[in-house]
Amino acid sequence: MRSLIRPLVAVVAVVTLAAGCASKAPSASGGSGAGGKKQFVVGYSQSNNAEPYRAQLNLQLEYFMKQHPDMKLLPIADAHQSSATQVSQVQNFIQQKVDVLIVSPNEPAPLTAAVQQACQAKIPVIILDRSVNTDCYTSFIGGDNYEIGKLAGQEAVKQLPNGGNVVELRGIMSDQPQIDRDKGFRDAVKANPKIKIVADREAKWLKDSAVPIMQQWLSKYPKIDLVYGHNDPMTLGAYLAAKAQHRESQIKFIGIDGLAIPDGGIRAVQLGELTSTFVYPTCAKEAADTAYAIAHGQQVGKKQVLHTTQVTKENAAQLYKQYDMSGKISG
């Protein structure tokens, strides 16, 4: 089993934005900070703070933004997995005339018009993790979800050399990461025709949603060999359901996120709850640095694709130490 996955190539291409898109440094609307220097105001609309990955992203973004004294991050707006709420939040940030807007879209289509409104208002927009149906933004930052799904599928093929029954817990069906993680996985498991995906359901990225779904599957299918979850919380929800029926030892569990937190995916691999997971970068440092660059008139990549690393029993301890930011954040 490979312990480290070849990094995905970071795409940092400088692109001239279409007319009407915000591509130049904004004026400082935040007033003066310490020492009389101008402060640039950043607004961030998060899709759902209840997801551990996004809660960690928030904490890291606050930390990394503080490394730039002339950048002011407003209180993070939580959309609570409601696209209507998030549209309202984005429009509110536009009315406040923030200097840079960061959005982690709950769903692509509903947020598209709101992002275009920001663009028309000459507010630079950074899109994190999930796409929108417009090119009128300044920079997209995220991982290659198709590639991560493909790597998860390749791991499934390794874990099930003789084939077997797989169940798949999916994120929000309209989200591009869900679409890509599903397609990558399915393309990869075609390498072994004896692997059958017998069931898949939307669990909306949430552990609490995954538990009852897995309970139903355990009742319906006497033989489940592997669970593929589009994130670690859903996969761990499936693990808990299987453990309650004393079937966890018969099943392999593969997730995505790989957070270095006590109840995250890396620790779950160490504990033997997950067979493997894949680190999906929070994008927090890149978002803070990109916001700073935009505010100071520097050119940034239109698309920034971050690499992933596979977490296995062999490298989990080392990766936990590498990605753990608890000391910095709490300090």
Score class of each variant (00 low, 15 high):
residue 3 S to A: 11
residue 6 R to N: 11
residue 7 P to E: 11
residue 9 V to E: 13
residue 16 T to M: 12
residue 16 T to H: 13
residue 19 A to F: 15
residue 20 G to Y: 06
residue 23 S to T: 05
residue 29 S to E: 02
residue 34 A to D: 07
residue 34 A to Q: 10
residue 35 G to S: 04
residue 36 G to W: 08
residue 37 K to R: 09
residue 46 Q to W: 03
residue 48 N to G: 01
residue 51 E to I: 14
residue 53 Y to A: 04
residue 54 R to N: 08
residue 54 R to G: 02
residue 55 A to E: 12
residue 57 L to S: 07
residue 58 N to A: 13
residue 69 P to Y: 09
residue 72 K to R: 12
residue 73 L to N: 01
residue 79 A to N: 00
residue 80 H to D: 11
residue 80 H to R: 11
residue 81 Q to G: 04
residue 83 S to F: 00
residue 83 S to D: 00
residue 84 A to W: 01
residue 86 Q to R: 00
residue 98 V to T: 02
residue 103 V to A: 02
residue 106 N to T: 05
residue 108 P to N: 04
residue 110 P to W: 04
residue 110 P to E: 02
residue 115 V to G: 01
residue 115 V to Y: 04
residue 120 Q to V: 13
residue 121 A to W: 04
residue 121 A to Y: 03
residue 122 K to L: 04
residue 123 I to K: 00
residue 125 V to A: 01
residue 126 I to Y: 05
residue 130 R to Q: 04
residue 134 T to L: 03
residue 134 T to G: 02
residue 138 T to V: 03
residue 145 N to L: 03
residue 156 A to M: 12
residue 157 V to W: 14
residue 158 K to S: 12
residue 161 P to A: 07
residue 163 G to Q: 11
residue 164 G to E: 04
residue 164 G to A: 07
residue 166 V to R: 05
residue 167 V to H: 10
residue 173 M to G: 12
residue 173 M to N: 15
residue 179 I to R: 15
residue 181 R to I: 08
residue 182 D to Y: 15
residue 189 V to A: 07
residue 190 K to Y: 15
residue 195 I to S: 05
residue 198 V to S: 09
residue 200 D to G: 13
residue 200 D to I: 15
residue 201 R to P: 13
residue 202 E to Q: 12
residue 202 E to H: 10
residue 203 A to H: 09
residue 204 K to M: 07
residue 209 S to R: 13
residue 210 A to T: 09
residue 211 V to W: 06
residue 212 P to M: 03
residue 213 I to E: 13
residue 213 I to C: 10
residue 215 Q to G: 06
residue 222 P to A: 05
residue 223 K to R: 12
residue 228 Y to I: 06
residue 228 Y to M: 08
residue 229 G to T: 05
residue 230 H to E: 10
residue 235 T to L: 14
residue 235 T to K: 09
residue 236 L to N: 14
residue 236 L to W: 14
residue 237 G to A: 08
residue 239 Y to Q: 11
residue 239 Y to V: 07
residue 254 I to H: 07
residue 255 G to W: 12
residue 255 G to M: 10
residue 256 I to W: 10
residue 256 I to V: 14
residue 261 I to C: 06
residue 262 P to R: 13
residue 270 Q to P: 04
residue 274 L to M: 08
residue 275 T to D: 09
residue 276 S to F: 15
residue 276 S to D: 15
residue 278 F to E: 07
residue 278 F to R: 03
residue 279 V to G: 03
residue 282 T to F: 08
residue 286 E to C: 03
residue 287 A to Y: 06
residue 290 T to P: 02
residue 294 I to P: 02
residue 299 Q to F: 03
residue 301 G to D: 02
residue 303 K to M: 11
residue 309 T to C: 09
residue 310 Q to K: 12
residue 310 Q to F: 12
residue 313 K to W: 13
residue 319 L to W: 09
residue 320 Y to T: 07
residue 329 I to K: 07
